[in-house]
C-alpha cells in the first residue's frame, strides 16, 4: 500500500538582494493513498506548483517532512506526526513520475524511444522495455505512432506520450503539472476522459494541478483548494463526479448535473473570495 504524507510543510524563498522573503507554502498537511486522484486548484501564486515540486523532490521544504511508500520496503523507517510512515522523500526518483505542461519530451528520440526512456535509464533489457512501452502507448491510444518524431506530433499527442512515458516507469505516483493547460478546449476534454480511463485501469495515485474548475471537479476524487499569500490549503472536498463519468461516459451530462453546478459555484466563490481579499 502506497501512502504519501506531507507533514507540516512550509517553503520559504529567501528574498532576492535584501528583499523580503516569500512564504510560498505555509504548514501544509496532505495525505494520499493508492488510487487517489487529488486535484489542486487555486489562483496563481497559491503554491500549487511549489507543492508539486516538493513532492517530486525538485525543491526541499524549509520546515516539515514528506514521506512516500511503505517504511518496510526500503530505507530507514521515519517516525513522523506521531506514527511510523515511510521513507523520507529526499530528491527526485523513479517512484514519482512527472508530466509537465509542455516541452519535456526529448526531440532526438521517437515516440517509443521516449516512452521507454525511463526503463532504458534503469538498464532494462530492450525487448522487455519495448513491450512495456508499447503497452502504455496502446493505453493512451498511440499504438500506431511508435516511430513518429515527437516534435511533429500535435500538442495533445505529445502530452499523451508524456503520460505514457511516466506510466511505463511504473511509479508509485504520478504528478501532473497543468498537463492539459496548453491544449485547445476539445483536445483538453478528450484527454480528461483519457486520463480518467488511465487512472481507473492503472489505479495509480495521482496529484493533478489545474486552473480550470470544471476540469478539477470532473477529475478529482479529492479536490484541494489552495489560497495565496501565504500558500496554504484552505478547503478539501471529497468528490465522485469522476465515478459518475466513468459510469455514464458522458462528461457533458455530468457537468450539467445540479450537484456539479452547485459545487462549481461553491468552489468559484471560494477562489473569487480569495482574489477579492488580496485585491
Amino acid at each position: 500500500m502506497n501512502t504519501l504524507k506531507v507533514c507540516e510543510v512550509s517553503v520559504v524563498y529567501p528574498g532576492s538582494e535584501g528583499g523580503e522573503s516569500v512564504t510560498a507554502l505555509s504548514d501544509v498537511n496532505l495525505t494520499m493513498e493508492q488510487g487517489d486522484l487529488v486535484v489542486a486548484l487555486g489562483a496563481s501564486g497559491c503554491g500549487k506548483t511549489t507543492l508539486l515540486n516538493l513532492i517530486a523532490g525538485f525543491i526541499s521544504p524549509s520546515k516539515g517532512y514528506l514521506t512516500l511508500g511503505n517504511s518496510k520496503v526500503k530505507g530507514y523507517p521515519r517516525v513522523l506526526c506521531g506514527k511510523e510512515i515511510g521513507d523520507e522523500v529526499t530528491g527526485p526518483d523513479a517512484d514519482r513520475g512527472v508530466v509537465f505542461q509542455k516541452h519535456a519530451l526529448l526531440p532526438w528520440l521517437n515516440v517509443i524511444e521516449n516512452t521507454e526512456f525511463g526503463l532504458k535509464l534503469q538498464g532494462v533489457d530492450k525487448k522487455l522495455r519495448r513491450e512495456r512501452a508499447a503497452e502504455y502507448l496502446k493505453l493512451v491510444g498511440l499504438e500506431d505512432f511508435h516511430q513518429h518524431k515527437v516534435y511533429q506530433l500535435s500538442g495533445g499527442m505529445q502530452q499523451r506520450v508524456g503520460i505514457a512515458r511516466a506510466l511505463t516507469n511504473d511509479p508509485k505516483m504520478l504528478l501532473l503539472d497543468e498537463p492539459l493547460g496548453a491544449l485547445d478546449a476539445l483536445t483538453r476534454e478528450s484527454l480528461q476522459e483519457l486520463l480518467l480511463d488511465v487512472w481507473r485501469k492503472t489505479n495509480k495515485m495521482m496529484f493533478f494541478i489545474t486552473h480550470s474548475v470544471d476540469e478539477a471537479l470532473l477529475l478529482a476524487t479529492r479536490l484541494v483548494v489552495m489560497s495565496p499569500r501565504p500558500g496554504r490549503i484552505t478547503h478539501q472536498f471529497e468528490l465522485n463526479f469522476n465515478q459518475q463519468f466513468l459510469d455514464c461516459r458522458d462528461a457533458r451530462q455530468v457537468k450539467s448535473s445540479p450537484e456539479f453546478i452547485a459545487m462549481r459555484e461553491k468552489v468559484l466563490a471560494i477562489i473569487h473570495g480569495d482574489e477579492l481579499a488580496v485585491a
Binding site: A56, G57, F58, G91, P92, D93, A94, R96, G97, V98, F100, K102, H103, A104, L105, L106, F117, G118, L121, Q122, R165, A166, N169, P171, L175
Partner: peptide, 10 residues
C-alpha cells in the same frame, strides 16, 4: 523540464 523529468525517471 527535460532534465527534471529524466531525474524523475530515476
Amino acid at each position: 523540464e527535460q532534465i527534471q523529468v529524466a531525474y524523475s525517471m530515476g
